[in-house]
């Protein structure tokens, strides 16, 4: 008995646990505690500043399901997430294939495409605002030069979601491009030589060699982009502020409004739980699906 005790004690000392206590405190205090507390608050009618509140059971959840805004915002969020993911991957892969060739300008082109990654999404949003703005925007300057009528893309609920997807893609396509470039460079040239001998066309080679061997890069990119797109916040604030009305709100901006403009903290926490579920389910499904497509090189 004594022996087991000392062995266990030794084992604990062996863990050098005191070295990660500070990190555990940070995570516990700022991430785990708020995470669990958020689930609790989602069952209350808290307004965000009062000392008292009531537990209301599933009321906020039934309210969420019958709230039209929930579905509008969820649709927008999915468009941001899935739209950005598809665009960033298709465009990022095309850029990577082009810039993997030995051609002039490729270094500078890569730098310019990558540059927005290190700039705040809020600032990129403002920069594109100068481009798309109804009054004095660069796009309308061109349209009017050719005698057309100025278009108000940011104020148009059918168009502004796609403008936001475009701006988000423009900003982060550099990340996808870099990951695909690294993936392309890791594919051995022997496969292509063998395929050339067998007389396979470029398209067949792309489909049968490049794409399957690039699967790990695709997995990483899809998961990163989907999480980034579903969390979109800064760009929306900069370009449309969620408007007109609710038209371009994402789950992030909707939660922000519920909490700070409508003092509806309990409901905001409920929307937070939904957002967490949406992100987890989509990113894990994507991860599992694309992992299953990966082949042994």
């Amino acid at each position: 008995m004594q022996k087991i005790k000392t062995a266990r004690f030794k084992n604990i000392n062996d863990s050098l646990w005191y070295m990660y206590v500070p990190a555990l405190l940070f995570i516990g205090f700022f991430i785990l505690y708020p995470f669990l507390n958020g689930i609790r608050i989602s069952f209350t009618d808290w307004d965000g500043f009062s000392q008292t509140y009531n537990y209301v059971g599933l009321d906020q959840y039934t309210r969420m399901l019958s709230d039209n805004n929930t579905w509008l915002v969820l649709r927008n969020t999915l468009l941001y997430g899935v739209g950005s993911t598809v665009l960033q991957n298709v465009v990022g892969l095309l850029y990577a294939i082009l810039l993997n060739q030995s051609i002039k300008f490729k270094a500078i082109t890569r730098t310019i495409i990558y540059l927005p990654v290190i700039i705040s999404p809020l600032i990129m949003g403002y920069i594109w605002y100068f481009f798309f703005a109804y009054q004095g925007g660069a796009l309308n300057d061109i349209i009017m030069l050719f005698g057309g009528d100025p278009v108000n893309l940011l104020g148009n609920p059918d168009a502004n979601i796609w403008i936001i997807v475009f701006v988000n893609t423009f900003q982060f396509v550099g990340v996808a491009m870099i990951i695909y470039l690294a993936g392309l460079q890791s594919i051995s040239g022997e496969y292509y030589e063998a395929a050339n001998i067998d007389g396979a066309s470029s398209f067949q080679q792309f489909k049968k060699i490049t794409l399957p061997l690039l699967m790990p890069s695709i997995t990483i990119n899809v998961v990163i982009n989907i999480i980034g797109g579903l969390k979109l916040f800064d760009v929306i604030i900069a370009l449309t502020n969620g408007g007109p009305g609710m038209a371009s709100q994402s789950m992030s901006t909707f939660m922000y409004n519920l909490y700070f403009s409508r003092q509806d903290a309990g409901y905001a926490a409920t929307q937070g739980v939904l957002m967490m579920l949406v992100i987890l389910i989509l990113s894990f499904s994507a991860l599992i699906y694309f992992r299953s497509k990966e082949v042994e090189a």
Binding site: F30, I31, P34, F35, G38, R40, Y256, G272
Partner: peptide
């Protein structure tokens, strides 16, 4: 996702 825990974090 950190933003999903915004309300309790703010509190």
């Amino acid at each position: 996702p950190p933003l999903a825990a915004l309300v309790p974090l703010y509190q």
